[in-house]
Design a protein around this nucleic acid. Structure first.
Length: 100
DNA sequence: ACGGTGACGCTCA
DNA sequence: TTGAGCGCCACCG
């Protein structure tokens, strides 16, 4: 159960500093895999919503926040609060995309 | 063992 | 530019 792909994603996600965001693709690359789908799955099964694993800090490669914020939009506001400039649910990856 | 599913990514029209 | 389709890997039933 430990050292599983999901655990890997969480670990990487945790090393993303506040005010920055990462993409599923970057996480997959960090895992030496192109399993961006699996990364999303791991987040979906995320055992620690909010504090341990800041899933809201993970965005899509095109700059969209992602499905988890589609319904409420609260997560978007949360990212903004961290200092990330978001316009219409789009994040400026050129400024806030954290690279491993 | 197999197939379906999913918080995605990229290319083509 | 926008929309649609195809491909990717890992997990669950």
């Amino acid at each position: 159960m430990k050292n599983s792909f999901a655990e890997r994603c969480y670990k990487i996600l945790r090393k993303v500093p506040r005010g920055k965001v990462t993409t599923y693709g970057e996480i997959a690359k960090a895992l030496k895999s192109n399993a961006y789908r699996a990364v999303g799955n791991a987040m979906n099964k995320n055992p620690f919503p909010g504090s341990k694993v800041p899933c809201h800090r993970v965005v899509k490669s095109n700059g969209e926040v992602g499905g988890f914020a589609s319904e409420t939009g609260k997560k978007v506001s949360m990212l903004k609060e961290e200092g990330i400039n978001i316009v219409e649910g789009k994040i400026d990856l050129g400024k806030y995309l954290y690279k491993f």
